[in-house]
Structures are given as C-alpha cells and as structure tokens.
C-alpha cells in the first residue's frame, strides 16, 4: 500500500511543495500503512526528503527529463507504480503536477481528485475533503478505484518533520524517443530575482484603488520589505498595469499564503475565490463598506497612499529591531 509522491525541486533540491507532500504522505501512511516513496527527476539532495518521512527516493537521472515533459513524467509514474505496487500517488498544486496527473489518471484509469485539503477522513471507503465551487464549499469525496491519485492543495497541510531512514536509488523508465519529440520545449521565461507568487509566504496585492501603474512603487517596496510576492486584481491585469502572471482570483491564480495583503481591492466574489484560503488576510481600503473586510482578519480603513508608505516605514523599523 505504498504512497508515491512527486518530488518537484529547484536546482536538485526538493522544493516546499515536495516537502509538504512528504509530510502529508507520512501522516497518511499512519492510517493506510505502507512506505512513502518519492519520485523525482534530477534530484541532487534526496536526503532533504528523509527528514519529512520519505523512506525511499527514486531518482530519474537522465538529461532528457531535465525539461518538464508531461507525458514522459506521467509515463514514468505509471512505470514506478508498476515497479513499487504503490496504491496512492500524491502530486502538488503546481502547473507541472496538475498537468501530468490528469494524463496519469487516464493512463491508469484511476480515481483522481484535486484541491485536497486534509488527510483522508476514512480509508474504507477512502474519502478525502476537497475545496469546490471556488472555495465556497468543502466536499467529501470517495475514491473508488484500486489506485488513487490525489493532488494536494497548496499550503493546506504544512510542513511536518518526521525523520525516516531513507535510501535513494536511480530509476530508469523506458520512454520512447517519440514522446520527447512530439511536444518540444522551446524556451522557459521566468521573472528572476522576485519571490514567485505560487510559493510565497506573504503576498502583497493591489487593485484598481491604486489609480494607475505608476503607483506600484510602494506595492513593490512593501513586498520587498516583507520578502513577499506581488499580485493584483483582474482589471489591473486587463488594463495592462501589471503582468497577467500576477492576476489572482477565479480566472487567475489561486494563492494560499500565510498572509495576503489586499490594497485598494474591493473584494469581489471572483477575486475572493482565488485568495480566501490564505491563512491571514489584511485589507487596506478607503471604503469601510468594501466587501473584502468581511473576508479579512485585519483591516485598516484608510487611503493606501497614506497607509502603505507609513506601514513600510514602521515595518522597516520593526525589521531593524528584530
């Protein structure tokens, strides 16, 4: 009844998503039994996963997998399931994980559930809780096939150290050359030197209340002081004030940081859908009736052009003394 997790990484080191999956898998294995096995492509520091309870690491050490290829990754997982007899496959809520998991579900004809937010409520029948209706509901869903695939929502379980004696071995899947040829990666463009939105602990987000793109300096400065990523509401991206990659909400990215700061955003239902899983929400808005205050933990009623610079100043003092 082993659990196989996808160990995504950055420069060979398992990333936070991988560690969260390991934490989840270890806790789950206490209910389901079985080992926790991690499968990664080009991991150089597999031992970082043992600390979170991984017993075995299968590492695909093959140049061809250096660039993500959904079908090749899915096929590798299929072969790893065959080899290990794993009954559960856990992947993370990132673009690669969501992409190849759906292919894998089709290949294995396996029940597959995304947006999973907690450990199984039940193992017989196997039932998990997931978000649905853009965070407006939580559903309990039963997976009825022998092999089950779970995509765990970001930041829903957290990191839990639970050291295991782990070992690592090289895994050599057989993938035809054609798979690498049929869809080819030409280039990858990533914003450098910035905190990526999807993994950020703190997100500083701003909306139409900021009046124009020229006023984003203070948003970026606040983000910098906090080590945060920046985001924005949909109209802000549509008007080209900010890049589309920053748009959060129902039709944009979903984020679930520890702190989401919303500046000059009204809190429309479609915006909330992408952010209301955040652990804490701070709203800064001139309008005390703005709907966002109903979804917030902390609120400041005030003009962003006064409050944000003042907050930056106070945070700098705070950081200097801590």
């Amino acid at each position: 009844m082993s659990i196989l997790i996808y160990a995504s990484h950055q420069n060979g080191k398992p990333d936070k998503t991988a560690k969260e999956l390991a934490s989840y898998a270890k806790a789950m294995s206490e209910k389901t039994g079985g080992e926790v096995i991690a499968l990664g492509f080009g991991l150089t520091a597999p031992e970082a996963l043992y600390a979170y309870g991984v017993n075995k690491v299968l590492n695909v050490d093959d140049q061809r997998f250096g660039v993500f290829n959904a079908k090749a990754y899915a096929e590798t997982f299929r072969q790893a399931v065959e080899k290990t007899g794993a009954k559960y496959i856990l992947t993370g809520q990132n673009s690669d994980g969501l992409y190849f998991s759906s292919l894998l579900a089709g290949m294995l004809q396996a029940a597959y559930v995304t947006q999973v937010i907690s450990l199984p409520e039940n193992t017989e029948p196997f039932t998990v809780r997931r978000k649905a209706f853009s965070n407006k509901a939580i559903a309990s869903v039963t997976l009825k096939t022998d092999i089950k695939i779970l995509n765990i929502a970001k930041n829903s379980f957290g990191l839990l150290e639970n050291p295991a004696d782990g070992t690592s071995e090289t895994f050599r899947p057989e993938i035809s050359a054609e798979v690498f040829e049929e869809i080819k990666s030409l280039k990858v463009e990533k914003a450098t030197g910035k905190v990526p939105l999807s993994d950020a602990e703190i997100v500083v987000s701003a909306g139409r209340g900021l009046k124009g793109p020229e006023n984003w300096g203070m948003v970026e400065e606040l983000a910098e002081v906090l080590g945060a990523a920046t985001a924005c509401s949909k109209p802000v991206a549509d008007m080209g004030w900010r890049p589309h990659t920053e748009h959060v909400g129902q039709t944009g990215k979903q984020v679930a940081p520890n702190l989401y700061i919303a500046i000059g955003i009204s809190g429309a239902i479609q915006h909330l859908a992408g952010v209301n899983s955040s652990k804490n929400i701070l709203v800064i808005n001139t309008d005390p009736e703005a709907p966002f205050f109903k979804a917030a933990d902390y609120g400041v009623v005030g003009d962003a052009f006064e409050v944000v610079p003042e907050l930056i100043k106070k945070l700098k003092e705070f950081k200097a003394s801590h």
């Binding site: 559930v113 039932t127 559903a139 400041v300």
Partner: peptide
Amino acid sequence: TTEYVKFEKPPAKSAVKLIDK
C-alpha cells in the same frame, strides 16, 4: 471512479479586527 458524499460550507470567518490608520 469517485463519488461526492457530502458538502459543507467553509467555517465562517470571525469578524475583522479593525486597526486605526
């Protein structure tokens, strides 16, 4: 392959703490 067995609403947020600007 799956079956939805129960739905619930997420727990309501407690009231916002307002801080003077």
